[in-house]
Amino acid sequence: MGFTRAQVEQLLQPINTVRVLRDGKGHSHVSQQDVLAHLIRVFGFGNWDIDIVRVECVFETERVKDDKPANRWDVCYRAMARLTIRDPEGNEICHYEDGSTATAQNQTRGDGHDLAYKSAISLAKKRAAIHLGDQFGLSLYNKGQTSALVRGTYVMPEGESAGKDVQEGVERQVSLGNDEIERDLDASVPEPERPVPTVKVDPNWVANFERRIDDASADQINALRQEVLNGFKHQRLDSDTGNRLMEAIQQRQAELGGQEAA
């Protein structure tokens, strides 16, 4: 037994735009939690597996400042994941493998490994799922296209139609965690370099934002991160300031994690 007719009809649907996120550079992608939720929606609980075939550290490099170790690190990991889809009786229908690398820059040594490791695994999972078509982000590689790229198939099983789109009612996705950044999406065709616009940053806003980071609770971290991303998007922040604020947010998140563990 292969896919049901209802499953194939769902896979031929264009991706619901509420599931699509954009990163600070305007690249479209779907979040890791949305991919996992959609696998459950389409194939059910227990009818798919994601196995991490391989994960390894590519490099760790300590930064140097004034000819002395800065205790800040750049770390890169690569991962390979296998996605297996089964029918309701547990028989394998298909499996796909894909991989990715991820780099965490200017982190403490522990945070660098943690962020790069998780990012590489998350990206590998998402890339494996893209083989299932537009419902899992395939069309987004065409410059963020949300209309269907796969509009039909000659292999259509018999059976009953679902009669509805399983994406209906899904809430708009807003999360953009550090392990959800798909940096190479929309990059199949290199774009010509464009002049970088001059961004005037309000120093008072930055100082106030840094105080908010210092006082932030765990529940406020994602909202602060989204503010920085919006600042990039609307050209209120330059890359140096934005990256510095992101690093401060990550540091505060690590501090809060340590407090909870204690």
Rank of each mutant, 00 (worst) to 15 (best):
Q235R: 15
S119P: 00
F43M: 10
L115T: 08
Q253T: 09
F136T: 01
E171S: 11
Q105A: 10
P203V: 12
D240S: 14
G144I: 05
E56H: 08
L39N: 02
Q135A: 14
R151Q: 14
H27W: 01
N142F: 05
K164W: 06
T4P: 07
A207N: 11
D34F: 00
D87G: 10
I50K: 06
R22L: 14
V206Y: 03
Q220R: 09
G90A: 12
R22P: 01
I121S: 01
H38T: 10
P157F: 10
G44P: 08
L224V: 08
S239M: 15
F232T: 02
S31N: 13
P197M: 05
G90C: 11
I181L: 15
G152M: 06
P195H: 02
G110E: 14
E182T: 13
E171Q: 12
A120W: 02
R22K: 15
L224N: 09
K65C: 06
T241H: 10
K125D: 10
K68Q: 12
L245M: 11
S175Q: 08
E62T: 02
Q251R: 13
D219Y: 07
V170Y: 12
S28I: 00
I121W: 00
G99I: 08
R244G: 12
L224K: 10
K118D: 11
G144D: 06
D87R: 11
V8R: 03
Y141R: 00
D186A: 11
Q251A: 15
I52H: 03
E158L: 13
R183T: 15
K143C: 02
I130S: 01
K164S: 07
A120Q: 05
I213Y: 05
E60S: 06
M246F: 14
T84V: 10
P190E: 03
R244T: 06
A128I: 00
F209Y: 07
G257I: 05
E227L: 10
Q167K: 08
T198Y: 06
D240L: 15
E158A: 14
S31L: 07
F45E: 13
W73C: 00
N91W: 05
R252V: 04
S100P: 06
V189I: 06
S31H: 09
T241C: 12
A162N: 01
Q135V: 06
H113A: 05
F232A: 08
G169Y: 06
T241D: 04
L123F: 01
V201L: 07
P190M: 02
Q10C: 14
H38R: 13
I121H: 01
I213D: 02
E255W: 03
E193R: 03
I50C: 13
Q235H: 13
S161N: 01
Y154R: 14
V53S: 11
Q253I: 01
G133H: 03
N208P: 00
G24M: 08
K25A: 13
E180G: 07
D67G: 04
M246H: 06
D114I: 02
A6G: 15
H113P: 03
L176T: 04
A124G: 05
V42K: 03
A81F: 05
Q7M: 14
Y154S: 14
Q33L: 12
I249R: 01
L224D: 04
V150G: 06
Q33C: 09
F43C: 04
P14C: 15
Q226C: 05
R225F: 10
V228H: 05
